[in-house]
Computed example of a mutant assay.
Amino acid sequence: MTEKIGLIGLGAMGLGMAQSLRRKGYSVHVCDVRTEAAQAFAAVGGVACATPAAVAEHCEIVVSVVVNAAQTEQLLFGENGAAAAMRRGSVFVMCSTVDPNWSIAMEKRLADMGLLYIDAPISGGAAKAASGEMTMMSAGSPAAYAKAGAALDAMAAKVYKLGDAAGPGSKVKIINQLLAGVHIAAAAEAMALGLREGVAADALYEVITHSAGNSWMFENRMAHVLAGDYTPLSAVDIFVKDLGLVLDTARASKFPLPLSATAHQMFMQASSAGHGREDDSAVIKIFPGIDLPAAK
Results as ranks from 00 to 15, higher is better:
5 I>L: 09
5 I>G: 00
5 I>V: 13
7 L>V: 12
8 I>Q: 02
10 L>Y: 06
10 L>Q: 11
10 L>C: 04
16 G>Q: 13
16 G>V: 00
16 G>S: 11
21 L>D: 13
21 L>H: 09
24 K>F: 00
26 Y>C: 02
29 H>A: 12
31 C>I: 02
31 C>V: 07
32 D>Q: 05
33 V>Y: 10
35 T>G: 15
36 E>Q: 15
38 A>Y: 03
39 Q>I: 09
40 A>S: 15
42 A>M: 00
51 T>H: 08
51 T>A: 07
52 P>W: 08
54 A>F: 10
56 A>H: 13
65 V>G: 02
70 A>P: 00
70 A>D: 11
71 Q>L: 10
73 E>L: 14
74 Q>W: 00
75 L>G: 01
76 L>D: 11
78 G>K: 06
84 A>V: 07
93 V>L: 15
98 V>T: 14
100 P>G: 10
101 N>T: 13
105 A>D: 14
108 K>G: 15
111 A>M: 02
111 A>F: 00
112 D>N: 08
122 I>K: 00
122 I>G: 00
128 K>I: 01
129 A>Q: 09
131 S>V: 08
133 E>D: 10
144 A>E: 11
149 G>M: 04
149 G>S: 01
149 G>H: 05
150 A>D: 15
150 A>N: 10
157 A>W: 01
160 Y>F: 14
161 K>D: 03
162 L>H: 07
163 G>D: 11
163 G>C: 11
164 D>Y: 07
165 A>R: 14
165 A>Q: 14
167 G>W: 06
169 G>V: 07
170 S>Y: 01
170 S>C: 10
170 S>R: 06
171 K>P: 00
173 K>Y: 06
174 I>P: 06
176 N>K: 04
180 A>Y: 08
186 A>W: 03
188 A>W: 12
196 R>Y: 11
196 R>K: 15
197 E>D: 11
198 G>F: 10
198 G>P: 12
199 V>C: 12
207 V>S: 00
209 T>Q: 08
211 S>M: 11
214 N>P: 02
214 N>Q: 15
217 M>N: 03
217 M>I: 00
218 F>M: 05
218 F>W: 11
218 F>C: 04
220 N>I: 01
221 R>T: 01
221 R>K: 13
222 M>F: 07
223 A>R: 14
223 A>M: 02
238 I>Y: 04
239 F>Q: 02
239 F>T: 03
240 V>R: 02
246 V>A: 14
246 V>R: 00
248 D>R: 15
256 P>W: 13
260 S>D: 05
261 A>E: 08
263 A>V: 09
264 H>E: 11
271 S>Q: 07
275 H>P: 01
275 H>T: 00
277 R>E: 10
284 I>K: 14
292 L>A: 09
296 K>C: 01
